[in-house]
Simulated assay, not measured.
Amino acid sequence: MELIAPTVTDVVAAQRRLAGLVVRTPASSWTALDRAVHRAGAVGASVVVKQENLQHTGAFKVRGALNLLLQLPPAARDAGIVGYSTGNHAQALAYAARHVGAPCTIVMPTDPNPVKERAVRDLGAEVVLHGERLEDACAHAGTLADARGARLVSAADEPDLVAGVATATLELLQQVPDLDVLVVPVGGGSGAAAACVVAAALAPGLEVVAVQAAASPAAHDSWRAGELVARPNRTRAEGLAVGRGFALTQGVLRRHLSDFLLVDDDAITRGQHAYLTAARTVAEGAGAAALSAVLTHPERFAGRRTGVVCSGGNASEAELRRALTCDATAVPA
């Protein structure tokens, strides 16, 4: 079945549907963070952070999950959903399923972020641990959904999910309409595709730049190749730990994305350090990836008003310790 990308009309409808159910998160700036970006080489840049780390469940994904589940027919809700995730998508589905009263099962890789696994269980979902990578969890989730007659919810190939996620970009443009470029982290690509849908319709001069972990470059390489590819999936930033491209999001990115950058895991950790020390903001690895791209590729953003999506704040204790003790010379406070 061909997947049809959402339109900005779908996004506006989603914003109305989600009114009062999601946080209208801040778009924040800090002088110290701008100073760190300037010292990294992005001279004259100013950074605006869309703080989806302050969203319900600590990440942007809940926007998409609620938008999707609120539109499920009653029979589908009663049958329940099965999802697969490294954590934030899992929490979002569990949160949305609890809101609409639907049974929810989440398949996670066998060594998940303990903060995220505990949160999923606390939200009332059944958690099944299976396989080392997201791809293993995905296959097992499909088997469980078939056996139970439940709705399998993809991590990215869901138009209603993308439309819901896109409400974050719609909010940002309402808050800060004069951005030159918007940097969005990519795992499956729902956030970047969502940003492209909104920018293409409402701010055609806005460049949308995606960023992915170099250790898990499937979406980046799919976009560069113009076809879906699988790649090794080794990043420690679990929100970016995806080993293949997704058809729906890649189709949108091919039409509208301005650029796609890679950052290594140590650069992501330095981005987390910059958030902690310059903005007193907790970001998980995936949440810091957009800022890491600005710090790693400063010439791309010099002199530009740059929006970065802090997509999640569900960092484990180990992540925070690593960020606070890392060699942060690339991002001085």
Rank of each mutant, 00 (worst) to 15 (best):
A79N: 06
A166C: 08
V211D: 02
A13T: 12
R234W: 02
Q175N: 01
V37F: 10
T86L: 08
A289E: 04
T281R: 14
G187A: 11
G312E: 11
G191E: 02
T143L: 10
A119E: 07
A214P: 01
A90Y: 06
A13E: 15
R16V: 10
A40V: 02
H256L: 00
G142Y: 08
G101P: 07
A168P: 05
A96H: 09
A76K: 12
P114Q: 13
A14I: 07
C326P: 06
T86E: 01
R322T: 12
A125I: 08
L129Y: 05
T9S: 14
R280S: 11
C326A: 13
V153H: 09
A65E: 05
Q272W: 03
D221Y: 01
L54K: 09
A125E: 03
I4E: 08
V308C: 05
P217V: 09
L253Y: 01
L54N: 02
G287W: 12
L70G: 13
D266S: 12
G101I: 09
D34I: 11
Q272M: 15
C310E: 01
A328L: 08
V198S: 03
R305K: 14
F260P: 00
L257Y: 11
A27Y: 02
L324I: 03
V120T: 15
S258E: 02
L173M: 04
H56A: 15
